[in-house]
Amino acid sequence: MSLFPRLIPVLLVSDGYLVKPVRFQGDTYIGDPINAVRIFNEKQVDELVICDIDATPKRTGVNFQLIEEIANEAFMPVGYGGGVASVDDARRITGIGIEKVILNSAAVTEPDVVRGISDALGASSTVVSIDAKKRLTGGWETYSERGSRKAGMTPADAARRAQDLGAGEVIASSIDREGTFSGYDTKLIQTVTSAVSIPVIALGGARDMSDFHQALAAGASGAAAGSTFVMTGKHHAVLINYPAPSEVRTLAS
């Protein structure tokens, strides 16, 4: 395992505001994403992900102004997803100073966009996010457009296709666990990691450090979380937080 464990806060944005849904539904207002980025700077976060969760469903496209503000504030590498629909979008995003471009819906409906971005920017800058939900009959279905549209493939199939198209990394997100503090779906993580050779980032359901350990033990290359890093306590009060560097280093053991 890497000596530098990847523990990644994920900030979800809607209409320019930081929000937190549960199972992709019912957005709770959290605050200003720029303020959150500043706090994560102070807490020495090594990596950050920003996702505009309504850019594609609402057809608003990429919020380049917000991206530029984030890039100007962030001291750490940032990945951005939301409304990315073309190679030109990706070039403009990375030109602003964002290191990674994350694709979700476009990876389902326009797979050639993934290949084009990988060819233009490199695999290391190309990430595919896979949103998965359990089927009643067993296994998982992949969804796009904020969990509203079935993709017609399993998460393992989606991950293999992403790798074949040139993605250098995938994010495996559990819709069922998102925002619930019920722990990662480790079986989902194992299913996706066993399907590909590229890094897999686990997302959805993290509660505490023990969950991060479990995600990495299940094969994930990194553990990502949203609610855990923007809420605290049994009443889920808003508080931007992140473990001390010494705690993060324990994930390497």
Rank of each mutant, 00 (worst) to 15 (best):
D15K: 13
G16Y: 00
V19I: 15
R23F: 01
F24M: 10
F24H: 02
Q25S: 13
Q25V: 14
G26C: 07
G26K: 11
T28A: 09
T28P: 06
Y29R: 14
Y29N: 11
I34S: 04
A36F: 03
Q44L: 15
Q44I: 08
L48R: 07
C51L: 15
G61I: 05
N63E: 09
L66H: 01
I70R: 00
E73F: 02
E73H: 05
A74G: 09
F75P: 03
G79W: 00
G79E: 05
G79C: 08
V84A: 12
V84S: 07
S86P: 07
R92T: 12
I93H: 04
I93C: 07
E99R: 15
K100W: 00
V108C: 06
V108N: 01
V114M: 09
G116C: 13
G122Y: 06
V127R: 02
D131E: 13
A132M: 06
K134A: 15
L136V: 14
G138Q: 11
E145A: 09
G147Y: 00
A151G: 15
P155S: 01
A156Y: 00
D157Y: 04
A159D: 07
R160W: 02
Q163T: 13
A167S: 12
V170C: 12
I171L: 06
I171F: 04
D176T: 12
G179I: 04
F181S: 14
D185P: 08
Q190A: 15
T191C: 10
S197C: 10
I198T: 07
V200M: 06
D208Q: 03
M209Q: 05
D211C: 14
D211T: 11
A224K: 04
A225Y: 01
S227G: 10
S227D: 05
F229Y: 10
V230A: 08
H236Y: 04
Y242R: 08
P243L: 07
A244N: 07
A244H: 11
A252K: 13
S253Y: 07
